[in-house]
């Protein structure tokens, strides 16, 4: 094991840096820029049963130290992902990948998860019960412990592969949701998804986004994400993947000190397509400066 390697649910990652779902497509745009095998793994674009065009545009807005998005789970549908995207990915990425699953019913979550879990390239399932940008699904499963547990159980029933539940920050008590997922069989948790937000165009006096609201991400949410990772990692025994505004190697270390076993990089990829390799290049030096030999030794280190 190298000094950057971590273990995520029994699968070794060569490093803890993972591009977050929705900011990395199915890998190809970035594979054209650098060898994406340098990454620990990555989380594929959120996939649903049916193809989805997503929300009307504009889907993107600027924010102080961040951005809003309301893409609305645009994806080609699970069958096209299996028939087209995964074979294409196999040519450029040779590690287990995280399949991110979304749905509008418990049955849909289970069906899409079962199909993706059956693919040898898929190492983990990441179940998104926290998308703020779709209606009648998505986040509604992630804002109430019983519903979160129900989705977790349904997906648990269709796969033995490691199961990650992706949590929403748009709740009063994220710890209760986290515990419900753990109790229902989740192997790990990833948090946070984006924070429900709004921008208004001063000239038109209307919301900038066609969807009205969108999810805030980027450095603006980093301290909020850090606080939630801290709270959840104290409350559960399963590993936590920290995400939300991580933009540098120092941010990644801070997230791991808060309790994260691995770190996802989201909005930073969209601002700087080389964000992940830059973070990876900087990490050993940051560890040296901090007198840390192995990055796994700092997981939860701030809890004392």
């Amino acid at each position: 094991m190298g000094r950057l390697s971590v273990n995520l649910c029994g699968i070794e990652l060569s490093n803890p840096i993972i591009p977050a779902s929705g900011t990395f497509g199915y890998g190809h745009e970035f594979a054209a820029l650098y060898d994406i095998n340098c990454l620990g793994t990555f989380s594929m674009k959120g996939t649903t049963r049916q193809p989805r065009f997503g929300n009307p545009t504009p889907r993107i807005a600027e924010a102080p130290a961040g951005m809003l998005n309301a893409v609305g789970l645009q994806n080609p549908g699970v069958d096209a992902v299996i028939a087209e995207e995964l074979p294409r990915l196999a040519k450029v990425f040779h590690k287990p990948v995280i399949a991110n699953v979304s749905g509008f019913s418990v049955e849909e979550y289970a069906e899409v998860s079962a199909k993706l879990a059956a693919q040898p390239q898929v190492g983990w399932l990441e179940v998104n019960i926290s998308c703020p940008n779709v209606h009648g699904g998505g986040m509604s499963f992630g804002t109430e412990p019983a519903a979160a547990a129900e989705v977790t159980r349904a997906v648990r029933n269709v796969t033995d592969k490691p199961l990650i539940l992706k949590l929403s920050p748009n709740v009063t008590d994220i710890v209760s949701i986290a515990r419900a997922c753990e109790g229902a069989g989740a192997d790990a948790l990833s948090l946070i998804n984006t924070v429900l937000a709004l921008r208004i165009d001063l000239k038109t006096r209307r919301p900038v986004l066609a969807n009205v609201t969108g999810g805030l991400s980027g450095p603006a949410v980093f301290p909020l994400a850090l606080r939630m990772v801290w709270q959840v990692s104290r409350a559960v025994k399963i590993p936590v993947i920290g995400l939300g505004g991580v933009s540098s190697a120092e941010d990644a270390v801070e997230m791991m000190l808060a309790g994260a076993t691995a770190v996802q990089i989201g909005a930073a990829n969209l601002k700087d397509p080389f964000a992940c390799p830059n973070i990876l290049r900087a990490l050993p030096g940051v560890l040296d400066r901090l007198g840390v030999n192995n990055i796994r030794d700092i997981i939860g280190g701030a809890h004392g």
């Binding site: 929705g22 900011t23 497509g25 997503g54 545009t57 504009p58 645009q74 969209l270 397509p273």
Partner: peptide
């Protein structure tokens, strides 16, 4: 188009075409 990334990753600038969804940026 109002874009997020500009290189095809975020799906922020998608349009519908006769050949299915396309990204204006990519």
């Amino acid at each position: 188009a109002r874009m997020g990334c500009g290189f095809g990753a975020c799906m922020g600038c998608s349009i519908r075409t006769v050949n299915g969804p396309k990204r204006v940026c990519k």
